[in-house]
Amino acid sequence: MATQTAGLTYAKWDDLAEGAQRELSVGPITRTDLVRYAGASGDFNPNHHDEIYAIRAGFEKPFAQGMLQGGYLGRALSEWLGPTALRRLRLRFSAQAWPGDMVISKARVTRRYEEAGEKRVEVEAEAVTQRGDVLIKATATAAPQG
């Protein structure tokens, strides 16, 4: 049954040196992704699906929910360190992602230590577009398997 993890192997704490990196590219984002995320998350802010509303609010067109690209960044960490390895995740949103954009999550281990009886890592991450616009800056604490 464990083979059902379809080749997903998680990084082990013992192998995670400071400076270890991971990257995950998702996209290009479509308007359908925004609508699906609205349904999955309950975020029905019209700026994310209603063209006329978004334009009247001063935007060129509907843009992605911050938590959609936040979700991609969370996925990048979860698929790297383990589905329940995260202990803390902090996302700071700095720009909008638009339909057609790639969301590229880049994460790096900045510290490796033991705390609260666990082997933990501190991670710095960001999500950027193909243009290099920084969508999110993030920090995380995780406890990967030894």
Binding site: Q4, L68, G74, R75, S78, E79, P83
Partner: peptide, 13 residues
């Protein structure tokens, strides 16, 4: 639903 929207690959979700 949430896992599929984000494309999470591990079937534990």
């Amino acid at each position: 639903e949430y896992a599929l929207v984000l494309g999470l690959q591990d079937p534990v979700h």
